Deep mutational scan, measured.
Amino acid sequence: MLYVKVKTEDGEELVLEVEGMTEDEIREELAKAGFKIEEIEVYEVEP
């Protein structure tokens, strides 16, 4: 499983499960949803 931890400019932290997306695609999708991203951390969790 691939997850991203996202910190927004307003200090909110989100953890999202993503599969088959690049970091650029993740940033693009979050921007479309109205999030202003300060930091993204991508990590993989073994089942």
Rank of each mutant, 00 (worst) to 15 (best):
M1T: 13
V15H: 07
R27W: 07
Y3G: 10
E28K: 11
I37R: 06
D10E: 08
E29T: 11
E9L: 11
E39D: 11
P47W: 05
M1F: 11
L14V: 07
P47E: 07
L2E: 03
V18D: 00
L14R: 06
V15I: 13
M21L: 10
E23Q: 06
K7G: 03
G11A: 02
E12K: 14
F35A: 01
L16F: 14
P47V: 08
V4Q: 00
V45R: 12
E46D: 11
E19R: 14
V42W: 13
E38G: 08
A31Y: 09
V18A: 03
A33Q: 12
K32W: 04
E19V: 13
E29A: 14
F35Y: 13
E23I: 15
V15R: 05
A33I: 11
E12S: 12
L16S: 01
D10V: 04
I26D: 00
K32T: 04
P47R: 06
L16V: 05
E41F: 14
V4I: 07
E46L: 13
G20C: 07
L2S: 11
V15C: 15
E39G: 09
L30R: 00
E25Y: 04
T22F: 03
E9A: 13
E13I: 15
E46R: 07
E44Y: 14
L16W: 12
D24F: 10
E28I: 11
M1K: 15
E44V: 11
P47G: 08
V42C: 06
E46A: 10
D24H: 09
E19A: 11
E44L: 10
K5H: 08
E13C: 15
G34K: 02
V18P: 00
K36H: 07
Y3Q: 14
K5F: 07
E25G: 04
E19I: 13
M21C: 14
D24E: 13
M1A: 09
E25L: 05
G34L: 02
V42Y: 09
T22Q: 03
E39P: 01
A33L: 14
K7W: 13
M21N: 04
L14Q: 03
E9S: 13
E46S: 11
E39V: 11
L2V: 08
V4K: 00
E28W: 10
E9F: 11
K5R: 07
G20Q: 04
V4C: 05
E17S: 10
G20V: 04
E44W: 15
E13W: 15
T22D: 05
E41P: 02
P47D: 07
L30K: 00
F35N: 01
E29L: 15
V18T: 03
V18Q: 00
L30P: 00
V15M: 09
E38Q: 12
E38W: 12
P47C: 10
G34S: 02
E39K: 07
E29M: 15
A31G: 07
G34H: 02
G34V: 01
I40N: 01
A31H: 08
Y3L: 15
K5W: 11
V4S: 00
G34T: 01
E13H: 08
L14M: 09
F35P: 00
A33D: 03
E46I: 11
M1Y: 13
L14N: 01
Y43F: 12
E23F: 14
E17D: 04
F35K: 02
A31T: 11
G11K: 01
I26P: 00
E13V: 14
M21Q: 05
E41G: 05
E44G: 06
I40E: 01
E28C: 07
I26G: 00
E28H: 09
I40R: 01
T22I: 03
V45S: 10
V6S: 00
G34I: 01
K5G: 03
E44Q: 11
K5A: 02
E12W: 14
V18H: 01
I26W: 06
E19T: 15
E29W: 15
E12G: 10
L30T: 01
V18I: 10
L30I: 03
V4D: 02
V45K: 10
T8M: 14
T8P: 02
T22S: 09
M21H: 08
M21V: 05
D10N: 11
V42F: 14
R27Y: 09
I40Y: 08
E46G: 09
T22E: 04
K36I: 09
V6M: 05
L30Q: 00
Y43S: 06
E39S: 14
P47Y: 09
M21I: 06
D10G: 08
I40A: 03
E19Y: 15
V6T: 01
K32H: 05
V15E: 05
K36M: 08
V6K: 00
A33F: 11
G34E: 01
E46Q: 12
E9M: 12
E17L: 15
E39Q: 11
E25I: 03
E29I: 14
A31L: 12
M21S: 05
G34C: 06
V42D: 02
M21P: 01
V15T: 06
K5T: 08
V4R: 00
Y43L: 09
L14Y: 13
L14E: 02
E46N: 14
